[in-house]
């Protein structure tokens, strides 16, 4: 469904992606892990062109995202994105957050958009917060509202950019539960995350990135459970047991 060939991205003289080849099948859940600064988020943002790749190709279905003649707005409609900072629209209620793009982009009627919004808010467990403003919600609720907003567009693919990294540890579980449900429903997902247990449990495949390249990829159990690369092993040791890594 997604095919990425020799993707490079530089910010000025800093090369963040140094030739990525990567593919995702329909219905697959891929978790991208790696140290910060390794290019995980940039890779994700190149897929829906929030960052313009310096070179290389990105294909989604039959569309070449990197083709300058392509209608990127039309492609983005089919890709949901969830951000680390939620990025809910603070001047709109939760329902309006979920309906605005349906109405303005998909041209759905108000009643149709609100029906879809109610459905998706129920799906993420926020039916009772439909009329609240983002500032009145906890971080975990905001992130679930952001997921509902993306889902309401009926995406073929969901991109998650460290969706739980700015949440209190005790509410991370709510967001992960919603994501787990999505995966079970067969949604194609790419998740940049530091939640190793989530990756292990939900991901069909785990990709380890370091310094702008994919160092290792494979089934979650193998990459996380018994990594081949020394660099992956060191990273996982530190992430899975920070205290122990400190001592060694």
């Amino acid at each position: 469904m997604i095919e990425i060939r020799d993707l490079h991205k530089s910010f000025g003289s800093l090369e963040v992606l140094k030739g990525i080849d990567f593919g995702v099948e329909r219905g697959e859940v891929v978790c991208v892990i790696g140290p910060s600064g390794s290019g995980k988020s940039t890779l994700l943002r190149c897929i829906n062109l929030l960052e313009q790749p310096t070179s290389g190709k990105v294909r989604i279905g039959d569309d070449e995202v990197t083709d300058p003649d392509v209608d990127i707005d039309a492609i983005r409609r089919r890709i949901g994105m969830v951000f680390q900072q939620f990025n809910l629209f603070p001047h709109l209620t939760v329902t309006e957050n979920v309906t605005i793009a349906q109405r303005r982009v998909l041209r759905r009627s108000r009643s149709e958009a609100e029906r879809v919004a109610a459905e998706n808010l129920a799906r993420v467990g926020l039916a009772d917060k439909a009329q609240a403003y983002p500032a009145q919600l906890s971080g975990g609720q905001q992130q679930r509202a952001a997921i509902a907003r993306a889902l309401a567009m009926g995406p073929e693919l969901m991109l998650f950019d460290e969706p739980t990294s700015s949440l209190d540890p005790e509410i991370v579980g709510d967001v992960l539960a919603v994501m787990r449900g999505l995966a079970q429903d067969g949604m194609t997902m790419i998740v940049v995350t530091h939640e190793m247990s989530f990756a292990r449990e939900v991901a069909d495949r785990v990709v380890f990135m370091d310094d702008g390249v994919i160092l290792e990829e494979g089934p979650a159990e193998r990459v996380i459970g018994s990594p081949v690369q020394d660099r992956t092993r060191r990273f996982l040791a530190r992430v899975l047991d920070p205290a122990a890594a400190e001592l060694s």
Partner: peptide, 15 residues
Amino acid sequence: VPKGQMEAARSLGMS
């Protein structure tokens, strides 16, 4: 207005 607002809107397919 934080940059993420524009990014979120664009990622929903808005021009």
